[in-house]
């Protein structure tokens, strides 16, 4: 059942996840499509999130957006400082954005970074953990993760676990997707694009999430505003139709269907890299178990649940 609608207001809206933002000229969603999308969300009783570009939107767009309760996802470099001040989620596109940004302690932040920058950027991440209430780190080149990176990633997260523990000791219960999410969950809590979330793109069409809009030529659109969403094979977006994931307990995993399609060609099957990384995170989270009394994360002997599922 669809619960969330993400409206990407412009072709150049910031990416807040694994996919690259579109480059090229800005193209705003039409005001008619924006109104129609909001109306659809109201009638379907779904929560709306708007994803913004760096430039300031015309005032009439803001007037339409304010007609519905919503959340704003805004790039850290947004020219519209008023929007930035009230954003629910602020996206730092790369480590280089950190130094120049004035952080708000009541906002959630997304840090998009390459694998290598993250593996060598322990101090930058610890700096963020000291300043934000929630940090989501998103790796933008998951496909480059090799088995040789496993140990380095484990060491990084082990070190960051110490930074999180220091925050907790100081009375700041910071949320960090790579380490604390697993401890706070009791079941899978994934992105669920195409199942609980869909996106409306500037072309007036629905997609499982904004990432698929970038691959629009591959036929991923799932309907338009006139006829509403029409998701073919909707069961494949659900957890119970994902043979690897439904057995898995790396509950913090995004289970990114777009990455799945890129790596394995199926929306319901994660690639090896995604599984390994989330299991390194799961295992590193165990270091923080003393901070979460009553929580258990059992020790397991595999990093890729595919090894279990294939048998």
């Amino acid at each position: 059942m669809i619960k969330y609608l993400i409206i990407q207001v412009d072709d150049t809206s910031v990416s807040y996840c694994h996919y690259p933002a579109l480059t090229g000229k800005p193209r705003l969603i039409s005001l008619d499509d924006l109104r129609a999308g909001i109306l659809w969300a109201m009638k379907e009783n779904v929560t709306v999130q708007f994803v913004y570009p760096s430039y300031r939107l015309p005032d009439e767009y803001h007037r339409v957006i304010e007609s519905i309760d919503h959340a704003d996802i805004v790039p850290a470099g947004c020219e519209d400082t008023g929007l930035l001040d009230k954003a629910d989620v602020i996206v730092l596109d790369g480590m280089s954005r950190i130094a120049s940004h004035t952080f708000r302690s009541n906002a959630a932040y997304v840090l998009r970074t390459s694998k290598e920058d993250l593996l060598t950027g322990r101090d930058a991440v610890a700096y963020l953990l000291d300043r934000v209430m929630r940090l989501n780190v998103v790796i933008t080149d998951v496909e480059t993760f090799t088995d040789d990176d496993t140990e380095r990633y484990g060491k990084l997260l082990g070190s960051l676990a110490e930074a999180v523990a220091e925050q907790y000791a100081a009375g700041r219960n910071v949320q960090f997707n790579l380490l604390t999410d697993r401890l706070m969950l009791d079941r899978m809590n994934n992105c669920n694009a195409g199942w609980e979330t869909i996106a409306l793109a500037p072309d007036g069409r629905f997609y499982p999430c904004p990432a698929f809009y970038g691959d629009a030529d591959k036929g991923y659109n799932i309907g338009d505003l006139h006829l509403g969403p029409d998701i073919k094979n909707p069961q494949l977006y659900r957890l119970d139709h994902a043979p690897i994931c439904r057995r898995c307990d790396a509950w913090q995993c995004r289970r990114c269907t777009w990455l799945n399609c890129r790596l394995t060609l199926e929306v319901n099957t994660p690639g090896h890299q995604q599984c390994i990384m989330t299991h390194v995170e799961r295992n590193a989270s165990r270091r923080l178990l003393p901070l979460f009394p009553g929580t258990e994360i059992p020790e397991i002997g595999y990093l890729d649940p595919f090894d279990i599922a294939k048998n």
């Binding site: 043979p243 090896h272 294939k310």
Partner: peptide
């Protein structure tokens, strides 16, 4: 590319 074999090797009748 073994990633592209994963859907085949985890496919079952019911799913």
């Amino acid at each position: 590319d073994k990633n592209r074999l994963r859907p085949f090797l985890t496919l079952d009748r019911l799913t």
